[in-house]
Protein backbone atom coordinates (compact mmCIF):
# COMPACT_ATOMS: atom_id res chain seq x y z
CA UNK A 1 0.00 0.00 0.00
CA UNK A 2 2.78 2.31 0.86
CA UNK A 3 4.48 1.52 -2.46
CA UNK A 4 1.29 2.41 -4.34
CA UNK A 5 1.05 5.68 -2.44
CA UNK A 6 4.67 6.46 -3.19
CA UNK A 7 4.11 5.66 -6.86
CA UNK A 8 1.07 7.95 -6.98
CA UNK A 9 3.06 10.70 -5.31
CA UNK A 10 5.86 10.41 -7.85
CA UNK A 11 3.36 10.33 -10.71
CA UNK A 12 1.64 13.46 -9.45
CA UNK A 13 4.98 15.24 -9.06
CA UNK A 14 5.93 14.26 -12.59
CA UNK A 15 2.64 15.56 -14.00
CA UNK A 16 3.09 18.85 -12.19
CA UNK A 17 6.62 19.12 -13.54
CA UNK A 18 5.37 18.42 -17.07
CA UNK A 19 2.66 21.02 -16.62
CA UNK A 20 5.23 23.60 -15.60
CA UNK A 21 7.44 22.68 -18.52
CA UNK A 22 4.52 23.01 -20.89
CA UNK A 23 3.55 26.34 -19.44
CA UNK A 24 7.06 27.55 -19.85
CA UNK A 25 7.23 26.54 -23.50
CA UNK A 26 3.93 28.24 -24.34
CA UNK A 27 4.82 31.47 -22.62
CA UNK A 28 8.09 31.62 -24.59
CA UNK A 29 6.39 32.19 -27.96
CA UNK A 30 4.80 35.42 -29.05
CA UNK A 31 1.89 35.81 -31.45
CA UNK A 32 4.16 37.78 -33.75
CA UNK A 33 6.32 34.68 -34.16
CA UNK A 34 3.66 33.21 -36.39
CA UNK A 35 3.50 36.24 -38.67
CA UNK A 36 5.32 36.09 -41.97
CA UNK A 37 8.84 37.42 -42.01
CA UNK A 38 10.54 39.70 -44.46
CA UNK A 39 9.44 42.88 -46.10
CA UNK A 40 5.72 42.61 -45.83
CA UNK A 41 2.95 45.15 -45.89
CA UNK A 42 1.28 44.65 -42.58
CA UNK A 43 -1.42 47.24 -43.11
CA UNK A 44 -2.33 46.59 -46.72
CA UNK A 45 -3.14 43.32 -48.41
CA UNK A 46 -4.19 42.29 -51.85
CA UNK A 47 -7.51 41.22 -50.39
CA UNK A 48 -8.31 44.77 -49.35
CA UNK A 49 -11.22 46.34 -51.18
CA UNK A 50 -10.28 47.71 -54.58
CA UNK A 51 -8.76 51.14 -54.28
CA UNK A 52 -7.44 50.91 -50.74
CA UNK A 53 -3.84 50.14 -51.58
CA UNK A 54 -3.70 52.62 -54.44
CA UNK A 55 -5.22 55.41 -52.38
CA UNK A 56 -2.65 54.77 -49.70
CA UNK A 57 0.10 55.15 -52.29
CA UNK A 58 -1.17 58.61 -53.14
CA UNK A 59 -0.24 59.70 -49.65
CA UNK A 60 3.32 58.53 -50.17
CA UNK A 61 6.29 60.23 -51.70
CA UNK A 62 6.93 61.13 -55.29
CA UNK A 63 4.88 62.68 -58.09
CA UNK A 64 2.12 60.11 -58.21
CA UNK A 65 -0.98 62.23 -57.82
CA UNK A 66 -2.57 62.86 -61.18
CA UNK A 67 -0.02 60.79 -63.09
CA UNK A 68 -1.44 58.62 -65.86
CA UNK A 69 0.54 55.42 -65.69
CA UNK A 70 0.59 53.60 -69.03
CA UNK A 71 -0.76 50.07 -68.70
CA UNK A 72 -1.09 47.36 -71.35
CA UNK A 73 -3.32 44.32 -70.83
CA UNK A 74 -2.79 41.23 -72.96
CA UNK A 75 -4.57 37.92 -72.96
CA UNK A 76 -4.64 34.63 -74.77
CA UNK A 77 -5.02 34.65 -78.49
CA UNK A 78 -8.45 35.86 -79.54
CA UNK A 79 -9.45 37.47 -76.26
CA UNK A 80 -10.68 41.03 -76.65
CA UNK A 81 -10.56 43.79 -74.08
CA UNK A 82 -12.47 47.05 -73.95
CA UNK A 83 -12.77 49.87 -71.49
CA UNK A 84 -15.70 52.12 -70.58
CA UNK A 85 -15.35 55.73 -71.51
CA UNK A 86 -14.20 57.96 -68.72
CA UNK A 87 -16.95 59.69 -66.84
CA UNK A 88 -19.65 58.30 -69.10
CA UNK A 89 -22.44 56.38 -67.37
CA UNK A 90 -23.76 55.15 -70.72
CA UNK A 91 -23.64 51.36 -70.57
CA UNK A 92 -22.86 51.11 -74.28
CA UNK A 93 -20.03 53.58 -74.05
CA UNK A 94 -17.20 51.13 -74.36
CA UNK A 95 -14.11 51.37 -76.47
CA UNK A 96 -13.58 49.08 -79.41
CA UNK A 97 -12.53 45.58 -78.35
CA UNK A 98 -8.86 45.01 -78.91
CA UNK A 99 -6.46 42.19 -78.23
CA UNK A 100 -4.21 44.60 -76.41
CA UNK A 101 -5.76 47.16 -74.13
CA UNK A 102 -3.50 50.18 -73.72
CA UNK A 103 -4.42 53.14 -71.58
CA UNK A 104 -3.04 55.52 -69.03
CA UNK A 105 -4.58 54.87 -65.64
CA UNK A 106 -4.59 57.11 -62.63
CA UNK A 107 -2.84 55.72 -59.61
CA UNK A 108 -5.29 54.83 -56.90
CA UNK A 109 -8.33 54.64 -59.16
CA UNK A 110 -10.04 51.36 -59.97
CA UNK A 111 -10.89 50.58 -63.58
CA UNK A 112 -13.26 47.82 -64.61
CA UNK A 113 -12.70 46.56 -68.12
CA UNK A 114 -14.61 44.20 -70.37
CA UNK A 115 -13.32 40.82 -71.55
CA UNK A 116 -14.94 38.94 -74.41
CA UNK A 117 -14.09 36.22 -76.93
CA UNK A 118 -12.70 33.93 -74.27
CA UNK A 119 -11.52 30.69 -75.88
CA UNK A 120 -13.83 27.83 -75.08
CA UNK A 121 -16.48 30.12 -73.63
CA UNK A 122 -18.16 31.87 -76.48
CA UNK A 123 -20.56 34.52 -75.33
CA UNK A 124 -19.14 34.75 -71.85
CA UNK A 125 -18.21 38.18 -70.62
CA UNK A 126 -16.03 39.05 -67.69
CA UNK A 127 -15.53 42.36 -65.97
CA UNK A 128 -12.24 42.30 -64.08
CA UNK A 129 -10.78 45.31 -62.31
CA UNK A 130 -7.30 46.74 -62.44
CA UNK A 131 -5.90 49.02 -59.79
CA UNK A 132 -2.59 50.77 -60.35
CA UNK A 133 -0.84 51.08 -57.01
CA UNK A 134 2.49 52.53 -58.13
CA UNK A 135 4.12 54.09 -61.13
CA UNK A 136 7.27 53.75 -63.21
CA UNK A 137 9.86 56.42 -63.86
CA UNK A 138 10.87 56.02 -67.49
CA UNK A 139 13.24 58.34 -69.34
CA UNK A 140 11.85 60.93 -71.65
CA UNK A 141 9.51 59.73 -74.40
CA UNK A 142 9.54 56.13 -73.23
CA UNK A 143 6.47 56.08 -71.01
CA UNK A 144 4.12 54.58 -73.55
CA UNK A 145 6.78 52.30 -75.01
CA UNK A 146 7.26 50.59 -71.68
CA UNK A 147 3.87 50.37 -70.01
CA UNK A 148 3.05 48.07 -67.14
CA UNK A 149 2.52 44.76 -68.91
CA UNK A 150 -0.35 42.67 -67.56
CA UNK A 151 -0.40 39.23 -69.13
CA UNK A 152 -3.53 37.19 -68.50
CA UNK A 153 -3.68 33.55 -69.55
CA UNK A 154 -6.19 30.78 -70.10
CA UNK A 155 -5.81 29.57 -66.55
CA UNK A 156 -7.16 32.85 -65.24
CA UNK A 157 -10.36 32.65 -67.24
CA UNK A 158 -10.80 28.93 -66.71
CA UNK A 159 -10.52 29.42 -62.95
CA UNK A 160 -12.96 32.29 -62.94
CA UNK A 161 -15.47 30.39 -65.04
CA UNK A 162 -15.30 27.61 -62.48
CA UNK A 163 -16.63 30.00 -59.86
CA UNK A 164 -13.41 31.10 -58.25
CA UNK A 165 -11.68 34.41 -58.03
CA UNK A 166 -8.23 35.27 -59.32
CA UNK A 167 -6.11 38.01 -57.82
CA UNK A 168 -2.99 38.97 -59.68
CA UNK A 169 -0.42 41.35 -58.27
CA UNK A 170 1.84 42.77 -60.99
CA UNK A 171 5.28 43.75 -59.83
CA UNK A 172 8.36 45.31 -61.35
CA UNK A 173 11.00 42.66 -61.25
CA UNK A 174 14.26 43.38 -59.49
CA UNK A 175 17.03 42.74 -62.07
CA UNK A 176 19.28 41.45 -59.32
CA UNK A 177 16.89 38.58 -58.60
CA UNK A 178 15.38 38.24 -62.06
CA UNK A 179 14.36 34.95 -63.56
CA UNK A 180 17.13 33.98 -66.02
CA UNK A 181 14.99 33.32 -69.05
CA UNK A 182 13.69 35.35 -71.93
CA UNK A 183 10.25 36.65 -71.18
CA UNK A 184 7.59 35.94 -73.74
CA UNK A 185 3.99 34.84 -73.75
CA UNK A 186 4.89 31.27 -72.83
CA UNK A 187 7.51 31.93 -70.21
CA UNK A 188 5.67 34.78 -68.51
CA UNK A 189 3.84 32.54 -66.10
CA UNK A 190 2.74 33.90 -62.76
CA UNK A 191 4.03 32.85 -59.41
CA UNK A 192 1.31 30.88 -57.69
CA UNK A 193 0.61 31.45 -54.02
CA UNK A 194 -1.83 29.68 -51.80
CA UNK A 195 -5.08 31.04 -50.51
CA UNK A 196 -3.50 31.73 -47.17
CA UNK A 197 -0.68 33.86 -48.47
CA UNK A 198 -0.83 37.50 -49.35
CA UNK A 199 0.17 37.93 -53.00
CA UNK A 200 0.99 41.57 -52.33
CA UNK A 201 3.55 40.60 -49.73
CA UNK A 202 5.01 37.92 -51.98
CA UNK A 203 5.28 40.33 -54.87
CA UNK A 204 6.96 42.83 -52.60
CA UNK A 205 9.72 40.33 -51.92
CA UNK A 206 10.54 39.87 -55.59
CA UNK A 207 10.20 43.45 -56.74
CA UNK A 208 7.97 46.48 -56.52
CA UNK A 209 4.20 45.88 -56.81
CA UNK A 210 2.64 48.23 -59.32
CA UNK A 211 -0.85 46.92 -60.05
CA UNK A 212 -3.53 44.57 -58.76
CA UNK A 213 -5.90 42.73 -61.11
CA UNK A 214 -8.97 41.10 -59.66
CA UNK A 215 -10.90 38.75 -61.91
CA UNK A 216 -14.26 37.51 -60.73
CA UNK A 217 -17.56 36.60 -62.25
CA UNK A 218 -19.39 39.76 -61.33
CA UNK A 219 -21.61 41.12 -64.08
CA UNK A 220 -23.05 44.63 -64.45
CA UNK A 221 -26.25 45.33 -62.52
CA UNK A 222 -29.48 45.54 -64.42
CA UNK A 223 -30.37 48.89 -62.91
CA UNK A 224 -28.58 51.73 -64.75
CA UNK A 225 -28.45 53.72 -61.55
CA UNK A 226 -26.06 51.16 -60.09
CA UNK A 227 -23.66 51.27 -63.00
CA UNK A 228 -21.45 54.07 -61.59
CA UNK A 229 -20.92 51.97 -58.50
CA UNK A 230 -20.13 48.95 -60.63
CA UNK A 231 -17.59 50.87 -62.72
CA UNK A 232 -16.12 52.65 -59.69
CA UNK A 233 -17.30 56.04 -60.86
CA UNK A 234 -15.86 55.84 -64.38
CA UNK A 235 -12.48 57.29 -63.46
CA UNK A 236 -10.57 59.27 -66.03
CA UNK A 237 -8.11 57.49 -68.25
CA UNK A 238 -5.96 58.53 -71.19
CA UNK A 239 -5.42 56.63 -74.42
CA UNK A 240 -2.10 55.94 -76.00
CA UNK A 241 -1.37 58.28 -78.91
CA UNK A 242 -1.25 55.62 -81.59
CA UNK A 243 -4.44 53.93 -80.43
CA UNK A 244 -6.57 56.95 -79.78
CA UNK A 245 -8.34 56.76 -83.11
CA UNK A 246 -9.19 53.11 -82.85
CA UNK A 247 -10.20 53.26 -79.23
CA UNK A 248 -12.41 56.25 -79.67
CA UNK A 249 -14.67 54.29 -81.98
CA UNK A 250 -17.85 53.08 -80.42
CA UNK A 251 -18.30 49.48 -79.55
CA UNK A 252 -21.45 49.17 -81.65
CA UNK A 253 -19.97 50.80 -84.71
CA UNK A 254 -16.83 48.76 -84.91
CA UNK A 255 -16.75 46.94 -88.26
CA UNK A 256 -14.24 44.47 -86.93
CA UNK A 257 -16.55 43.29 -84.23
CA UNK A 258 -17.09 39.58 -84.59
CA UNK A 259 -20.24 39.27 -82.62
Amino acid sequence: MSQITTLRTHLAAGLIALAFLGEGSVSGSEPADFLPRGSTRPLFKASDPPGVVGQARLMGRGPVVGYYQPVAINGPEGVRFSLPHAGNPNPSGMTAPAERLEAGFLIGAVYRFHVTHIPGAIGVELFPTVEVIDRTYPPQHLATRYPIEIQLDDEDFRTVLNGQMVTRVIYLEDPQTAVPEIQNRKTNVPLEVSEFQDPLAVADEYGRPVAIVRIGSLIPPSQPALLPEFYFGYPQWAPFPHTSASQSANHDNDPNELE
Binding site: T167, R168, V169, P190, P199
Partner: peptide, 16 residues
Protein backbone atom coordinates in the same frame (compact mmCIF):
# COMPACT_ATOMS: atom_id res chain seq x y z
CA UNK B 1 15.94 51.11 -69.56
CA UNK B 2 14.41 47.65 -69.61
CA UNK B 3 11.69 47.18 -67.02
CA UNK B 4 10.23 43.71 -66.78
CA UNK B 5 6.98 42.87 -65.09
CA UNK B 6 5.88 39.61 -63.59
CA UNK B 7 2.93 38.71 -61.46
CA UNK B 8 1.82 36.72 -58.47
CA UNK B 9 -1.45 34.86 -58.80
CA UNK B 10 -3.78 33.79 -56.05
CA UNK B 11 -6.89 31.73 -56.61
CA UNK B 12 -9.56 31.95 -53.97
CA UNK B 13 -13.16 30.97 -53.62
CA UNK B 14 -15.91 33.46 -54.16
CA UNK B 15 -19.60 33.66 -53.43
CA UNK B 16 -21.80 32.59 -56.27
Amino acid sequence: YAPRFRSVRQVSGSLA
